[in-house]
Design a protein around this nucleic acid. Sequence first.
DNA 1: AAGAAGAGTGTAAGCGCTTACAATTTTGGC
DNA 2: GCCAAAATTGTAAGCGCTTACACTCTTCTT
Lengths: 342, 342
Amino acid sequence: MVKSHRATIQDVAVLSGLSICTVSRALRNLPNVSEKAQSKVMDAAAKLGYKASSAAARLAGGSTGSIAIITPTATAWYFAQAVEAAEEVFGDSGLDTVLISLRGKASVKQKFFGDLLGLSQRVDGVLLLNVDLSDSEIALLAASGLAVASVGMTSVPWDNVGIDDENAAWEATSHLLGLGHWDLAVLSGAESHENSVMSSSERLKGFSRALKDHDLTVHPDLIINSGSTIDGGRKAMNELIAHRSLPTAVFAYCDEAAFGALMAMREHGLSAPKSVSVIGIDDHPMSWFMGLSTVAQPVADQGAFAANLLVERLQNADAPNDPSNHFLDTKLIERKTTRRQR
Amino acid sequence: MVKSHRATIQDVAVLSGLSICTVSRALRNLPNVSEKAQSKVMDAAAKLGYKASSAAARLAGGSTGSIAIITPTATAWYFAQAVEAAEEVFGDSGLDTVLISLRGKASVKQKFFGDLLGLSQRVDGVLLLNVDLSDSEIALLAASGLAVASVGMTSVPWDNVGIDDENAAWEATSHLLGLGHWDLAVLSGAESHENSVMSSSERLKGFSRALKDHDLTVHPDLIINSGSTIDGGRKAMNELIAHRSLPTAVFAYCDEAAFGALMAMREHGLSAPKSVSVIGIDDHPMSWFMGLSTVAQPVADQGAFAANLLVERLQNADAPNDPSNHFLDTKLIERKTTRRQR
DNA sequence: AAGAAGAGTGTAAGCGCTTACAATTTTGGC
DNA sequence: GCCAAAATTGTAAGCGCTTACACTCTTCTT
């Protein structure tokens, strides 16, 4: 019954008594196929356990049945969550997901863009997770013919879902200010240039706006790139402690960076909130335990949402291109690493 | 200069003045190609920025240029580390990596094996990360024609790299016993049947052996499946606290499960090592901060190592099949969650 | 009731590669 | 130098699918 060799479209054609062409159309729900033919084909395909060869389909100009996820790293909590959620959506849609982790290496990103043409014949679409893109890179991607969607990016010409980063940062910072802190530092995530499309840029804006609201100015010395890892946060905080003046409160780009900051403080005999108040963004599973004040965001939901958007685009590829931007809700959670400044 | 259309093997053939066939052979370093032809082809290919279409190659019987990573989850620390390290190796070898996360769903694994034939024409090989496999599934995989390698599995008929899980668990447990504890519970990771190929099974063996060494017996009530997540550890420990007798020490399958256990204890007003001593395995980045005693293992190294093994297999596919098993070193790290029992 | 328009289906030409197998050139032994 | 064996290169037939285009029936028009 089960042949060791995979059923081909040919087999389906023979079994259903129709031509290969009709089978191909029926299988892809194209118009101009009678209901009778349609059901015959479906029956035959089911009976044979037929699934189209993605290689052949791709070669002949069809779709590849896979999409790429581009992520700065696969290990940080936020990204791992988003990747897994998106992978689930793609898998449920019968799509393979190829993972490309930039790992902070410029060379990898370069390779990615250098081989965009190649990539575009291996995948149908691309899901970007908070990837730092230049204008020309955005243009390249938009012109690549690939379907594109993203998580946590701003002002990009494709579907995006994220949180209102600027506002989340504003909330976190305002919380600190509201507690009477006025000497603040920020562990700012990734380095971000003017007009960056990344969330770290937005969060920095929110931080600055909150200070401005209190007639405070941002001291450049108290903005330190931490990346989004524990170790990055630790190094950034160490730098702050060792070479700059110690603020009374720190707003960290994300919870893991905040954990790192807490670690650095401990290494120096400091603790939160006694020495310094600390707040992050994420609500990482460890944050409750660490007593970390934070702004919670739904990460898996963002990944799944964006993935769904991408799948929809793929399904009606002829629909008009009207990039949508979706914000999911965040919520300030006050715990024990922040307290009133006397 | 740069054509919007991708260069094909045809273009390379024309530029180099050779036939498509020779080009194909030269590109793949097959024998029977003169050095002169070889270099001509390489030059032409480089000049055109040529890269073979994986779809066409695959269709014609060649390789796909991608490999699949099968992981129980992409979010747990251990797996995220291994995935990223492997992905780096594959990327450096010019291979795409398609990610398949089982997410604990039997249906996903079922789909995976159901479509093994399909998968085998989309990827050249499979890297398994501590995947729970039945004998028949192992047989299927071995017969699939795919190259296979794994991380953290035992007695499998393909290359594997991991740690000596049995011994690591023995060490952790012996540490507890050596401190005078004799009433021990274990958060045992994934549920594992007899003859399981998973690390949780090995670790349970190591735990049992250590007890046996001290003429202690394992009480089934004190073996609780925790999975490898924080939340799983928390639930398992809650179960222990609420419905079973509280031991004086707990050996957790991994650090994240241990964190969860610590959380559960805190929820019940307990703490380590005062109420219960706790030890894990991994040396997670947070473990230092948490003061968690643990057995450190090099996770990224394992992923990279296994990935390299797989790549090598792919490269000389005709080499004899002699599955190798590699153990990387572990190291007991004593911190503050374990202390002498009076 | 004849012809146009449309719906449904089939034919055949690739997509870019690999790989028998055939053709050609080179090498080496005498 | 001559011929067989070995080394190199070319020819052509697919791999399984999509798609332009041709063809055959149905439906409507008028």
